[in-house]
Amino acid sequence: MQNENIIKGQGAQRNVINRFDRFTFEPEDEDFDIIKTSFTEVFPKTIVNQVKSEDLPMEYSMNPYQGCEHGCSYCFARPTHEYWGYSAGIDFERKIMVKKNAPELLEKFFRKRGYKPEPILMSGNTDCYQPAERQFEITRQLLKVCLDYRHPVNVLTKNALVLRDLDILKPLAEQNLVSVSLSIPTINEDLRRKMEPRTSTANNKLKAIEVLSENNIPVHVMVAPIIPGLNSDEPLSILKSISDAGAQSFGYTLVRLNDTVEPVFVKWIEAQFPDRAQKVLNLIRSMRGGNLGDKRYFERQKGSGNIAEMIHNTFKIGRKKFFEGKEFPKLSIDGFTGTKEQQLKLF
């Protein structure tokens, strides 16, 4: 049974208190249903971030946008909005910052003296193909810069809009400079509408895998997050579907609700699944040592306890059954020149 008072098309049901604000005022009668998404152009000093987390397999990441319209209540990036003075709740989904000078900053980064190329993840925080990208095309411009400089890039998204940029992805792939990771936590469309309301449909994501694979663009799938009691019965069906569509590898994580993600998720699940909200929350706690979140490196990815172990074993079975013999290519750094002019001479 679903709560009739939920805000449709949103993950967050209200704003939550910003951890860094001494005073927070949220009108009780504010109608969030009629608040439209606003976009603010910002001009940061840098666009590439060095990833210092010990349990993440990448050296660099970049994010064309701050905030995300996709509306996933469990998104680990929500608390980053608080550093900008906003809430991790509704604000995260409806107050989007557009990094207009990102392409110029990326070129500047590539030209740094002594820079040694490593694949850059786009995006490591908020989705680079969220709906805003249709209008602003920052991601497309960044891909063009990567092509100009022959620099490897890993694209991570929940949105089939990635297919718009096949004209750039194909020449990147021909030089072994790109891979695409699609996030698919569920192939149950009713559940998808609630879990990630403004992402592409499950069928469109599977179709995107097919099209990318047909164009020889390596595809990885993140089956994430796994939420016990919601999508924890789906791993094998998801793995079969993505393997059949052409995915070459997959990864997964168990849900964790750190900091202000916790109140957003709790309000969301109580609104969307009032009949089993407490059961789901208790199952999450069983994987997180009695908590809903976990910030410990390595442990935060895998959890612990019987439920977590059952999920891990299911993925082991799926890997052997559907992905045995498949290999995911390592991107090349050999063609990077550090200058755009040399790259242009090759075409």
Rank of each mutant, 00 (worst) to 15 (best):
Y65R: 05
N204P: 03
L344E: 15
F109P: 09
D33E: 15
E309N: 13
K194I: 13
E324F: 04
Q66N: 11
V42C: 10
A12M: 07
Y252W: 08
K326D: 02
I6W: 09
Y65A: 11
N15V: 07
K316W: 00
I34D: 14
D294N: 10
F315M: 00
K326R: 14
Q141V: 01
T186C: 00
F336N: 14
C75P: 05
T314C: 06
M58Y: 13
S53V: 10
H81D: 15
D233C: 07
F43G: 12
G318F: 00
L346A: 11
P152D: 05
L166R: 11
E341W: 06
G124L: 03
G303N: 08
L257A: 09
I209Y: 04
V145F: 09
M287S: 05
K108A: 15
N176S: 11
K316M: 10
P235E: 00
Q50V: 10
E26H: 14
Y74G: 08
V180D: 00
G11A: 08
K302I: 12
K108Y: 09
H312K: 03
D127S: 08
S87I: 05
L182M: 07
V211R: 04
L143D: 13
P235V: 04
Q175A: 13
Q2E: 15
P218Y: 04
V16G: 06
P57N: 07
E270F: 11
L230T: 08
A308S: 12
W84S: 15
D91F: 09
G290E: 10
A277W: 04
L254A: 08
E174T: 01
G85D: 08
K295Q: 14
M287F: 00
